[in-house]
Each structure stands twice: as C-alpha cells, then as structure tokens.
Design a protein around this nucleic acid. Structure first.
Lengths: 272, 272
DNA sequence: CCCCGCATTCCACAGAATGGAATTGATGGG
DNA sequence: CCCATCAATTCCATTCTGTGGAATGCGGGG
C-alpha cells in the first residue's frame, strides 16, 4: 500500500491542540465502524486508519476488554459492542433539549403527519439526536437517532450555519471550499440564501432528496451548542406549497421547545 | 481521597492482558457518564475514576476534539456528544441478530400486547439491544436500547447464564459471590433453578419487579455471543398464568429469529 | 501436505504520557 | 472593588508506556 512514503511522525497532527495519541487512535478505530462497515478485521482497520498493524492489534484488544468491540473469531473480525448502546442511552436521557423536545416532536408528528427531527452538528455533518418518522402504519414509525447528513446540502445544516457565530460559519465555508472546490460557488450561494431566509423568517427550506422537502429552524440556548428542529415529508408537491403549510407549525414547535427548556432550566437552578 | 496509599503502578491491572493505559482510561472516563450522571466536571471525573486531575484534563480535551464529549462552559462540565449516537446507530444497523429479529419482535409485540426485548451481556449486566415496549397509545410505544439490567435477578440474565459455557457461568458466580456475599445463597439457588428450567423448556421466567413478569429464552448462534429474547408485561396476574400464555409464543418467536438468522448467514457467505 | 494471509508476540528504542506543583481564570462574598 | 476560593489548565522533569519492524503462530484453502 502506502509502503513508500510513510511519514515518520504520523500525519503531522499540528492542530496546535495537545492530544493524547493512544486515545485519539483508539477512537479513530471505533469511528472506522459505520453503517456499511460493520465488521472489520485488524488489517482492514490498520489500512483505514493508517495505524501500524501491531498497534491496531493492541488497541482492539483494549477496546474488546472495555466492551466497546466484540471479537468474532468466525470472521476474524470485530464489531461494535453493546456498551456503545448504553453510552447512547446516557446521551439521550442526559440531553435536556431532547428530553424537552421529544414529546412535543411526537405530538407534532402525529398531528401534522410529517417527520420531525432534532439534530446538532458533529464536525462537518449534522447528526440527528432523534427523528420521529411519521408513517401511516404506526408499527413502522421508527425513531432514528445518530444518522448523519451533510451540512451544506440540507435545510438542517443551513439553519445551523445561520445560528452559529460568524467565525464558525466562515471556518466551515473555508473547509467546504477545500472539500468541494468544484461545487463551492453554487453551494455557497444556496447557503447564503438560506441564512438570509433564517434571519428574516427564522426558518429555511430545502429539498436535497428528490420529492422530499424539509424545513428547519435553529434552537439557540445559552451555554449549549446550537440545535436544529426540522419537519420533513415525502411528497410530490412543490416546495413553496409545503413551506406554506409547515412554516407556522414549525415555528410554533420551536417556541414550545424553547419554553419547555426555560422551564427545565429554571427548575434545575434553585430559585434566587 | 485515597491520598495515602497510591500504588506506583496504577492499581495493578494484573489481568495478564496487555492493555493500552491511555485508551483504557479515556474509555473509563466515557463510561463514567451514565443515566443520572449526565454532566461531569473534570474533578468529578478525576474522583470517580481515580485518575490524576491533570491527566483527566488532557483526556477530556482529546475526547472533546473527537466529538465524544462536548464542553458546557456554563456548567464547567462535559456531557456525552452526539458522535456517540452515530456509533450506536452503526451498532444497530450492523448487528445481524437485531436486524433479523426486530421486525419479528415488533409484530409479536403488537399481536400479544407485550414488551419484547433483545439483549446480550456486557460485563456483569445484560444490556438491551432493543426493547419494543407495548403500549395502548401507540404514540407512547417507545423503543429503548442500551438499558442495563442485572444478570442475577432477571429472567434475561438467567437465560443467558443457562446458555454460556460452564467456565463463564462459574466465573460469573464467583464474582457474584464476591459482590453479594449476603444474598449469594438464595440467588445461586434461583439461578440454578432457572438454568434447569431453560435446559428443560428452553425458557425461564422471573418477576424481579413488582407486578411485572418476564420470560426469556437464549439465542445461541455460532460465532456470535449469546443473545436473549424476552417478553414481559406489567400485570397483576400470577406468574404461572402469564407463563402459560406466553411460553409458546416466545419459543415460536425464538425459532423465527433463528430461521431468519440462518437465512441471512446463508446469503452472506457465498454458496459453496 | 504445504503455503499463504492474517493476527499476535517480541524487543529495543524513544517518544509520549504522567502527576505534582504552579498558574490562570472564573465566582461569589465581604 | 478587591480578595478568598475552587476548579481547570499548563509546566516540566521523570520514566514508563506505547510504538513498529520483524519473527512467530494460527487457520484455511489449494
């Protein structure tokens, strides 16, 4: 593979941030597991992450004894272990925004017959804390959490960009330019428009998948990262029509969530 | 705290297993977050894990840049980050047993009006991969994954013990004896009975919470850890009555899942 | 039976992690 | 307004711990 140009000091993580290399690498290994790459052997991991085989072997061992990975001797490979699910449960139960929002999201989804999601940013993607998906047959109403979608293409991500600080926004755009030099001009244009729309109306809309339209609105809560609520639906209707129908309910959901948050913040901090 | 007797070489992890200390510690920090301990500051973490403050500080920094932790400056504390949810989604999507079982679990839950869960062991607890909870009002049908329950008290755990190797079982009992010296005799008795019951009927039952009865049956699939399916329900009925009603459906669910697994295994491995 | 690929173990090296102490920074009371 | 307090971070000398190339083991397939 990369036998020739192996740089001495790994790939020069000159982030300026002091980091713990072993931990960093261990986490890289964890993150190498993603939907579609469920079972990975040591050499695949070594290849994906660029870490030496011997090192990978030791790291996977500790990950296994920690329960984050389980070894499948049949396949000579690892999968993510159930411990991860416990951590995820802790995230969900411990997230005040999700706790406040989820009941409201459910009832809104029921009432309006749309999908309602709550997401936040992770690196350069949005990740759903939860998305309650509306479905005629209630048995199929799945709840999906952890799904990742691009920031630049979705109403979710654009609403997020509209709410974060100038600094963060330009930093993101810079990275985007590096990642997608070709499409950058048009993307930036769309993003700017969406941000303007949010500044004016507190929401923006997009249809990045064929026949599915989504509206999103940011949730800015002091001390917490920016969250975004969205409503989406699969329909042949044109975008403006859907926007007209959903923008008011979305903003109302937004207010309810913010109210609920204020309340829970109030009861957390003792009365002055 | 333990200011006096600080052993030089950490707490002598003489597991015999070579372990990566930094990674191990970083993961310990992650695991310190659990439902009920959502937001933790560096010093709390240092106290909980016994790791030096300076070290904790560096590890949390790494965890933050990896996205597994987010810093809340307001509270001078950390919470688990959304990245964890993505990992959890990868677990769920990548777990062949869950994928095979979930639709069957859903329909069984609907049909029988009971909760249906799938779990496996993690250290000395069982953790639900998923539990589809039955509820009259379909809007409240939550799906819980990652919840932990004790092995020794639950039908889930006892069915698990019945299916693992002799070695693992006695190892667990030994640890149990250490952890619960007082209650050990009675617990062991109950466990042995449950195991006998599984050996005879392929399921066992228990009611470890007041008015909630559960039946469980182990799923042994070569090359994978032992999984357990259970059905549970909150009812004032006496245990035998519930057992009579649910044992057949449970075993039938078990068979369906095993069949589905065989099928998916078959299509995974190319035809010989 | 032998070979091949992958995982694990070994080993010498040095880079990286460690923790006590000092520093910085934020909070709240006087 | 300033100081006392508490927590988080940074510093720095020490050395332990992680590292990766090579050797060894382990299975499976031809």
């Amino acid at each position: 593979m990369d036998a020739g140009g192996k740089p001495r000091k790994a790939s020069a993580r000159l982030d300026g941030q002091a980091q713990n290399r072993s931990l960093e690498r261990g986490l890289e290994i964890l993150k190498a597991f993603r939907p579609g790459a469920d079972v990975l052997g040591n050499s695949e991991l070594a290849e994906k992450t660029g870490i030496a085989k011997a090192t990978v072997s030791r790291l996977t061992q500790t990950l296994v004894t920690a329960g984050l990975l389980v070894h499948d001797p049949r396949a000579r490979a690892y999968r993510l272990g159930a411990t991860v699910l416990s951590l995820a449960l802790a995230v969900r139960l411990g997230n005040p925004v999700l706790q406040a929002a989820l009941p409201l999201m459910r009832s809104a989804s029921d009432r309006l017959r749309v999908n309602v999601g709550l997401a936040t940013a992770d690196h350069d993607e949005m990740v759903y804390l939860d998305s309650v998906r509306y479905n005629r047959k209630s048995a199929l109403r799945t709840v999906v959490s952890g799904q990742r979608v691009p920031i630049e293409l979705t109403s979710l991500g654009r609403a997020y960009l509209a709410a974060v600080s100038e600094d963060q926004r330009v930093a993101f755009l810079r990275r985007l330019q590096t990642r997608r030099p070709a499409k950058f001009a048009v993307l930036e244009q769309q993003i700017v428009e969406a941000i303007d729309c949010v500044k004016q109306n507190r929401y923006c809309a997009a249809a990045w998948q064929l026949e599915v339209v989504a509206l999103s609105t940011p949730l800015v809560i002091s001390g917490l990262p920016v969250y975004v609520v969205n409503m989406s639906l699969s329909t042949p209707e044109p975008l403006p029509k859907v926007v007209e129908r959903l923008h008011a309910p979305l903003l109302s959901l937004r207010s309810s969530i913010l109210d609920a948050m204020d309340q829970s913040l109030a009861e957390t901090s003792p009365p002055l």
